[in-house]
């Protein structure tokens, strides 16, 4: 470290981290369509997924544009392999039961919302513009997921138990969000993206308040998984991409 960071490469990586996380989470949430616990939730989940896919188009679109290699958002989404994906490990966790899906959403939203607030102040106007639009959508995501976590945490015995299992399972995947690497630091120093360490306090406060109201206990132990942002993923992502990328990969000369 300490070497001069190529700012274009850093920005490309930073945009892919945002766009890949929204893509992977949007994809995961879309898997619920037609299978949710109740019709009203089926519709609400699809709204969330649609927002995230829309944000993906913007983040990866900008990444492709600034890379200047004629790759658009679709090329980045459908023609990169797992080691080129930069999403957080948290969002590639399988849906599990509704409790896991909801807890994953909340833990991500609680980071995503302040992250976008910071990004809306970016020195890069293109980044700020996308963040401003996405910020409104994600403020609603957070309101919704926090409220549902509270309701199901402090609901029936079974819903409480399931939410606690979901929290215990997903907690070790949250550290990565607030742990900067050289790319994050370079982007923060340049005023393009917020300082991740600074997000920790906001995230902690929000998560602690909501989980307390939900009567859920934050797991002991500080171990945290890492690697997603650098392209080291779980086995789950490969399967997801195999499904998601099948058509453009099988028929590379086709347009759709």
């Amino acid at each position: 470290m300490g070497a001069v960071v190529d700012m274009d490469a850093a920005l490309f990586a930073g945009l892919c981290r945002l766009g890949d996380s929204t893509l992977v989470l949007g994809h995961r949430v879309s898997e619920w369509c037609g299978h949710a616990p109740v019709l009203e939730e089926d519709i609400a989940l699809a709204n969330t997924a649609l927002d995230l896919i829309g944000q993906t188009q913007m983040w990866l679109g900008l990444a492709g544009e600034m890379e200047g290699k004629a790759r658009n958002a679709d090329a980045l989404a459908f023609h990169r392999d797992v080691w080129e994906f930069r999403n957080l490990l948290l969002v590639e966790r399988p849906n599990g039961d509704f409790g896991h899906t909801l807890m994953r959403q909340f833990l991500f939203d609680a980071w995503h919302q302040p992250m976008l607030t910071g990004l809306a102040q970016s020195r890069d106007a293109r980044v700020a513009e996308i963040a401003a639009k996405a910020g409104k959508e994600v403020a609603y995501h957070l309101e919704r997921s926090a409220d549902l976590v509270i309701r199901l945490g402090d609901g029936s015995d079974e819903s409480h138990a399931r939410m606690q299992v979901a929290l215990d399972t997903l907690w070790p995947y949250t550290g990565e969000m607030m742990t900067p690497d050289a790319t994050d630091t370079a982007l923060a120093d340049a005023g393009i993206m917020p300082d991740l360490v600074g997000l920790q306090a906001t995230w902690d406060g929000l998560v602690r308040d909501v989980l307390a109201e939900a009567t859920l206990a934050i797991p002991d132990g500080g171990f945290m998984h890492k690697g997603g942002k650098q392209g080291q993923h779980s086995e789950h992502l490969g399967h997801m991409l195999a499904t998601m990328q099948f058509l453009p990969r099988a028929y590379p000369d086709a347009t759709w």
Binding site: V38, A44, N47, R144, D147, R151
Partner: peptide, 20 residues
């Protein structure tokens, strides 16, 4: 119309269902 356990959730469902 729609189904919801209470007024707050009814409000959110209404947003999701009827203002798409």
């Amino acid at each position: 119309s729609l189904h919801a356990p209470d007024a707050e959730l009814a409000m959110r469902h209404a947003r999701d269902v009827y203002t798409r």
